[in-house]
Simulated assay, not measured.
Amino acid sequence: MSFENILVEKNDRVATVTINRPTKLNALNKATIKELNEAFTELQSDDSVRAIIVTGSGEKAFVAGADISEFADFDDEQGAALAATGHDLLFNFVEHLSKPVIAAVNGFALGGGLELAMSCHFRIASDNAKMGLPEVTLGVIPGYGGTQRLPQLVGKGKAMEMIMTAGMLTAEEAKTWGLVNHVVPQAELLGLANDLAQKIAKNSPVALAKAIETVNAGFDKDADGFMTEIRSFGYCFGTEDFKEGTTAFLEKRKPEFTGR
Rank of each mutant, 00 (worst) to 15 (best):
F93K: 08
I33G: 13
G191I: 05
K30T: 07
S126C: 08
G225F: 03
V180N: 03
G245K: 05
V105N: 00
V136H: 10
K175Y: 10
G86Q: 02
A211K: 08
E240A: 12
V14A: 06
F257D: 08
E135N: 10
A201M: 08
A72R: 12
F219E: 14
A187C: 07
N26D: 01
K130H: 03
F93A: 02
F233D: 11
T55M: 04
L82W: 09
G143Y: 08
F93C: 01
F62K: 08
N203A: 07
K24G: 02
A27V: 01
G238C: 13
V180P: 00
I6Q: 03
E244Y: 03
N194A: 11
K24F: 04
F233A: 14
L179N: 03
A109N: 02
I163A: 07
A80H: 05
I230W: 13
G245A: 11
G191C: 00
E38N: 07
F108Y: 02
V105T: 03
D241M: 04
V183T: 04
S2W: 09
L153I: 13
E213S: 15
T170S: 15
G58N: 08
T176Y: 14
E4W: 01
V49D: 00
T228V: 12
P22I: 08
T16H: 00
K24T: 04
H96Q: 10
T214C: 12
F249N: 08
